[in-house]
Design a protein around this nucleic acid. Structure first.
Lengths: 228, 228
DNA sequence: TGAAAACCTGACCATATCGTCAATTTTTTA
DNA sequence: TAAAAAATTGACGATATGGTCAGGTTTTCA
């Protein structure tokens, strides 16, 4: 599958009428919730329809099959995930670039936990839908950024770290707060993760990773611009 | 749910005959595979029965419902997960204790990827079955170990790191290689993860975390006792 | 060895859910 | 405004799957 809607079309090509676009947005939002909670098999079209405030038949008018809805949700998510690596380039300062990436990923996780969970579920079951994307776009993107990091290491700007494994680590460290929120809440003894929890988590990951890469920890806990 | 089979019984209480015990083992092994690949809803009793080499009705003779099989699989997994924190105690050396824990978790992930995936899937969907375990046994265990780490930090033996978030990070860093193996394989450009890949991953995580905790990296890539 | 317990299984039922469809209403547009 | 296009929807069919059960076979053990 590709991230773009389909070849030769611009983003959100206004295919179909005004009503169509509105309802598709509502359906995709509802579907993201339901897929996140129940997975692909566990989600039912009836439940998605209910969450979207439409009768089931109407849902089938917009998306022929459940798989189609699912693919559309994944395409939405990939669009989110794809960005955020711009700052990682040869000219940048390693500490700033990595910090920015971690903060961005963490923000994404905090703001779209359901998206993260749908993505995690897809990966967990072998990525039947997005396998191609992983092996092409994502692999190339990572290879590209890994070269940048290699260069930083060669220039003595940071400690020697396997760059590809570093990316794997960054994804794991950040997305775990959405994907395994239940476990995180349990050990933190919190009913749910609020923004204060995410701030602490971000500070922790920054601290661990930057120090782990031989880059002095720039942020002390509590020094965030946000109010507490 | 509790990890022990049921109150008042010893571990593997030999309930039922010889045949029962044999078949239950086969069924649980088959079920772990199937649940790992398809999740709870996606797994079918017919598929589990086929993988176990039994007719479906026979499966229902041993486990009344699919949920029962699932709970038994989870109980098995929790028994694996629970150990391995012994070395983290006040008397131990932080570097050695953490390194041992990371290596143990990584070995567990490499040797039981399906178990990790079933566990991940359960967490991803809100831990309906093991929520109690997380909020009790696991939370207390982590609180206990966190106190040890706090003491190490207070004694100046390691850099200041939030201990509970550190555990969350360690779980994420290790289990990601099983849970999201598809993605890992894609970016590493490998068809599947072999033991050499796990050795590299272990070296990377050790390097990142120990340095991140202000503990000198003890292991350079390639210095493993294993061949290759 | 014989009876009781454990084990086995094909056939079957109940239910859930995906997807269809034809008839109807609403919106757009010429 | 009238015709065409888009949108709506309740009822229905097909299928998959969890679980039951009665009757049979094997194993255990006194």
């Amino acid at each position: 599958m590709t991230v773009a809607p389909s070849p030769g079309e611009v983003d959100t090509p206004a295919r179909g009428g005004r009503i169509r676009r509105q309802h598709e947005v509502a359906i995709l939002a509802a579907a993201e919730q339901v897929f996140a909670r129940a997975g692909f098999q566990g989600a039912t079209m009836a439940e998605i329809a209910l969450a979207a405030g439409l009768p089931k038949s109407n849902l089938h008018y917009y998306f022929g099959t459940k798989a189609e809805v699912y693919r559309a949700v994944l395409a939405n998510i990939l669009r989110l995930w794809l960005a955020e690596t711009d700052r990682i380039n040869a000219d940048a300062d390693p500490r700033e670039a990595l910090a920015h990436y971690i903060e961005a990923k963490m923000r994404l996780t905090a703001e779209h936990p359901d998206a993260s969970r749908v993505f995690a579920n897809e990966l967990l079951h072998g990525a039947p839908e997005i396998g191609d994307y992983l092996c092409n776009e994502l692999r190339l993107l990572v290879a590209d950024k890994a070269a940048v990091i290699e260069a930083w290491i060669a220039a003595g700007k940071m400690a020697p770290v396997d760059p590809v494994h570093l990316f794997i680590s960054l994804w794991a460290l950040t997305q775990t707060y959405a994907d395994f929120e239940t476990q995180v809440c349990a050990v933190l003894n919190r009913p749910s993760l609020e923004s204060a929890d995410y701030r602490r988590a971000t500070a922790h990951v920054l601290n661990l990773v930057l120090r782990g890469c031989g880059l002095a920890p720039p942020i002390l806990e509590g020094s965030f611009p946000c109010s507490t």
